[in-house]
């Protein structure tokens, strides 16, 4: 019997399905009762997606987890990005080298229009992906996002062209993430249901910069993932 057949046969025996032998310990179980899943939990928040209240809550929660948040209008966005890039510490690179960014292939070009001339922008494309070493030498990444949840301070990237493949938003030490306020929902179920249209896309749920609580359960921000997370919240007005 193949491992597959044997494991499935053991499961059937454990569930008391007739004629299926026993488990490894020689047991035959009883059939479980039918289950109805109660779903009394909230599937939507009190506040509408994109409302002032959810945006305010998202800011609060992001800052609580040591992310840096700026709220800007679409017109202000390029300058805001440029300002953040100008302040980059360049921790991983030689300060004498020019500041270097990576942007996924589908990122709106206008967002990077205000960068100063000495900033080098690498476009990561499916045809010419950057290597891990390339990414490691860069100072920051700029991406869009798919959806955000205010109650938990979570932003989700789903790998579409404006967000890039997962390595791009992972290896650089600083992540500049642009979130439109109409992408902000209050609750986890609202977020999940927006994502469930494309569950096959590789998703990264991000709630603040990387962190660890492994030493005496004290939280320390910044480990292997980007140590700095800037969130630019854009209100389409």
């Amino acid at each position: 019997m193949s491992a597959r057949e044997e494991v499935l046969q053991r499961i059937r025996a454990a569930l008391g399905q007739p004629g299926t032998g026993t488990t490894a310990a020689g047991r035959v179980g009883t059939a479980p009762a039918a289950v109805e899943v109660p779903r009394e939990y909230r599937t939507a928040g009190d506040d509408a997606p994109g409302s002032e209240a959810v945006v305010e809550q998202l800011v609060d929660r992001l800052e609580d987890y040591m992310a840096h948040v700026r709220q800007v209008s679409p017109d202000e966005l390029p300058a805001a990005i440029a300002a953040l890039v100008a302040e980059l510490p360049g921790a991983e690179t030689d300060r004498s080298a020019p500041t270097a960014l990576v942007a996924p292939s589908g990122l709106e070009a206008g967002w990077l229009a205000a960068l100063t001339d000495d900033v080098v922008v690498h476009r990561d494309t499916p045809e010419a992906p950057l290597t891990a070493g390339d990414l490691d030498a860069l100072d920051a990444v700029v991406t869009a996002a798919r959806v955000a949840c205010s109650e938990t301070g979570t932003i989700v990237l789903d790998g579409e062209p404006d967000q890039g493949r997962r390595a791009v938003s992972l290896v650089p030490d600083v992540h500049l993430c642009v979130v439109r306020t109409d992408q902000v929902v209050q609750t986890v179920p609202e977020m999940v249901r927006r994502l469930s249209a494309h569950p096959e896309r590789p998703q990264t749920w991000i709630s603040g910069p990387s962190a660890t609580s492994d030493i005496e359960l004290d939280r320390v921000e910044g480990v292997h993932g980007p140590r700095t997370l800037h969130v630019l919240l854009v209100s389409p007005r």
């Binding site: 929660r61 987890y65 499916p126 992906p129 949840c149 109650e151 938990t152 301070g153 979570t154 790998g159 493949r165 997962r166 390595a167 986890v188 999940v192 569950p199 096959e200 896309r201 590789p202 998703q203 990264t204 749920w205 991000i206 709630s207 603040g208 910069p209 990387s210 962190a211 609580s213 993932g225």
Partner: peptide
């Protein structure tokens, strides 16, 4: 479960990172 787990385990509203993947995505990972 992604509400129950982080609050119960690390005592965070959400853990910093959750990765979801489905089989192989060409060109990613």
């Amino acid at each position: 479960f992604l509400q129950l787990l982080p609050r119960s385990s690390t005592g965070e509203r959400m853990n910093p990172y959750t990765s979801l993947w489905t089989g192989v995505t060409p060109g990613d990972g």
